[in-house]
Amino acid sequence: MAKQDITCDDIIKELKTGQYRPIYYLMGEEPYYIDLISDYITDNVLNETEKEFNLTVVYGADVDVATIINAAKRYPMMSEHQVVVVKEAQNIRNMEELSYYLQKPLLSTILVICHKHGVLDRRKKLAAEIEKSGILFESKKVKDAQLPAFITSYMKRKGVDLEPKATSMLADFVGTDLSRLTGELEKLIITLPKGQTRITPEQIEHNIGISKDYNNFELRSAIVEKDVLKANRIIKYFEENPKTNPIQMTLSLLFGFFSNLMLAYYAPEKSEQGIAAFLGLKSPWQSREYLNAMRRYNGVKTMQIIGEIRYADAKSKGVGNSSLNDGALLRELVFKILH
């Protein structure tokens, strides 16, 4: 496997076997996986006694590369390894100088660099030195279409199942902030009645505050089915509860759906499996709405809808709009979609 293709699961699996690298450079736009790996190393490589002398945690705003190298060159005390964790490493200047240490790293040191909201230039010498002796991991943002699979997989590891509608409600409401999403999932696990291992839309409504009948998932469904009455009932609810149903979240979801719908017209095979594979959806059931929408919206209409969503987004930010509130904007947009 190419170094740049290594996954979070690959790294955790290797760590669990006791195979440690001299450096783990964790970088990227998604903080969740960076924290997951660094926390695993911090919690599991050393026992509690060893941590007192052999665990060093520093922050990028407080140190320079020379300080990190000096810490990495120390030998462990009464332990096989020492762990040095550098958080917020994106704040460190001249990180390239770390390459001199990596030409001959101390094998008893596990150096963990947490570089969030950015990446190293893989063409530079430092990236090459990291890949020679350690792990260079890029934590990429999860796409909206990948969220249901992430939720299902996360809960499966916890021994919990979710109804498909419950999964979609969570994905649509929380979005791609994985730290917040896993927090909400843990909340659901804690509140599950004893002996129950399946989460329903009703439980999400009760414990997270998402209405099972009035949410973006149901609005999208109403639009796909061209159910004018249901769509307007949901819009009215959104207008009365703007804090829990911001228009930007709704517009983002609709834009993502109709953009994917436009792509679905080019799928070689117009079946649940064919569209799921073409769009990169993890489950064939996720493609059912696209198939339903293709029966009601042709390609030309879909392109027009995408344009109207963009126009509504601009107006919601004050561009060319002096009077319409968010509820009126959404009502106008949905009317244009449905007619």
Rank of each mutant, 00 (worst) to 15 (best):
N321F: 02
S259M: 14
N260I: 00
E308M: 09
S221G: 14
P284H: 04
D313K: 05
I234Q: 13
G318S: 08
S323V: 11
N292E: 12
A231C: 02
A293C: 09
R310T: 08
V228D: 10
G327E: 00
R310A: 11
L251R: 03
F217K: 01
R288K: 15
L263A: 13
S322F: 00
M303T: 01
F217C: 06
L324S: 00
E269C: 03
L253S: 15
Y237W: 12
S271A: 06
A312I: 04
Q304Y: 10
N245Q: 11
R220Q: 14
S316Y: 09
G318H: 03
P242R: 05
A314E: 13
E240Q: 14
L254F: 08
Q304D: 11
G280I: 07
Y237A: 02
E225Y: 03
T302K: 01
I275E: 11
F257P: 00
G256K: 08
R295Q: 14
E239M: 02
I306S: 07
Y311F: 15
K301M: 10
N298W: 03
G320I: 04
A264G: 09
L263Q: 15
V228F: 14
D227Y: 07
V300T: 08
L324H: 02
K282G: 15
F255E: 08
K315W: 00
L324C: 00
A267W: 09
G299P: 05
G318F: 12
I305R: 01
A293W: 01
Q273D: 14
M249C: 03
I235G: 00
Y297K: 04
L281W: 07
Y265G: 10
E269S: 14
T244C: 07
L291I: 15
L279K: 12
R310W: 05
S323T: 13
M303W: 02
S316L: 00
D227I: 05
V300I: 11
S283Q: 14
I306P: 05
R295G: 06
G327D: 05
K236S: 14
V319F: 14
M262L: 15
Y290R: 02
R296V: 02
A222N: 08
E225R: 12
G274R: 13
N260Q: 15
F238I: 00
L263W: 09
A276W: 09
W285G: 03
E240W: 00
I247P: 03
R233W: 02
I234H: 09
K243G: 06
G327T: 00
P284W: 08
L229W: 02
R295W: 02
F278P: 04
I247F: 04
S271D: 08
L291F: 04
